[in-house]
Amino acid sequence: MSTTDGTTNASAAAALGFTPGLAVQELGWDDDADQALRDTIMDAIDGDLLYESNEAVDVVLLWWRDSDGDVVDGLVDALTDLSPTGYIWLLTPKVGRADYVDPTDIAEGALTAGLALANPASVSSGWQARKLVRPKGNRR
């Protein structure tokens, strides 16, 4: 399936680094989340997205909107089940969409939560993704 910005969901899932066997926790899902992207991610990991976990997860997929509140709170919550070497994909509405999150808020939120912004990715016509990682000195 192709999105309006020319990416396919399969290439978006690959760009996000999803591979079979990864434990991926999803937080912040709502009706506006890109279902086709979610399905493609589940296909790529060959499993379901987790909502709760008794073990550390490799990746947290965090859907976040401006109306969800302070992005710091969402990022701190996302760290709860994340493995020391894991990372977060923060998905926010694209510019011009309802509930768009200002990049300055994301950068400040990442810093406050003790995370570093890594590479961004265009994942669908309505959502953009930003990878957040623990700074290298904090990974164990």
Rank of each mutant, 00 (worst) to 15 (best):
G74A: 06
D99T: 13
Y100S: 04
L61I: 09
L111A: 11
N54P: 08
D77H: 04
T92W: 05
V95P: 14
S125Q: 07
G109K: 04
I106V: 06
S83Y: 10
P20V: 12
G17D: 02
L16A: 11
G6N: 10
V57P: 01
A107S: 09
V57Y: 02
Q128E: 12
G28T: 02
V24R: 01
W127Y: 12
D58V: 08
N9R: 02
V133D: 12
Y100W: 10
L82F: 09
D31Q: 15
W64R: 07
V95R: 13
S67V: 05
S122G: 11
L79H: 11
A113C: 07
A15C: 06
G74C: 07
G21R: 09
D105C: 10
E108I: 13
R140N: 12
L111E: 12
V24Y: 00
R97W: 10
D46Q: 15
V59C: 06
T80D: 06
A78F: 08
I88F: 01
R130A: 05
A129F: 06
T104S: 14
A33M: 11
T80C: 08
D30Q: 04
L16K: 08
D32W: 15
L79R: 13
E108S: 13
V123E: 13
T3I: 09
L111C: 08
P20H: 15
V101Y: 01
T4F: 09
T92M: 08
I45D: 13
R97S: 01
E52S: 06
I88H: 00
L49Q: 03
P135F: 03
V123A: 09
A36T: 13
I41K: 02
L75K: 14
A15D: 13
N9W: 00
D81P: 06
G28M: 03
D70I: 01
T4K: 10
A13D: 10
A36Y: 15
E55K: 07
L37K: 02
Y51L: 11
D66M: 05
T104H: 13
A44H: 01
N119Q: 14
V133I: 06
A10R: 11
R134L: 05
V71P: 00
Q25V: 02
R38G: 00
G17H: 01
T3H: 12
N119T: 13
R139E: 02
D34S: 14
D30E: 02
L117H: 10
L111F: 14
G21P: 12
Y100C: 05
V60G: 11
D70L: 09
D31P: 07
G109W: 00
P103D: 13
L62V: 00
A36R: 11
D32M: 11
M42T: 07
A121Q: 15
R38K: 01
Q35D: 09
I41G: 00
G69S: 07
L22F: 14
R97K: 08
A118V: 00
L91H: 07
W29K: 05
T4M: 05
D77C: 03
A36K: 12
A113S: 10
T40G: 03
V60F: 14
A23S: 03
L16S: 08
T8G: 04
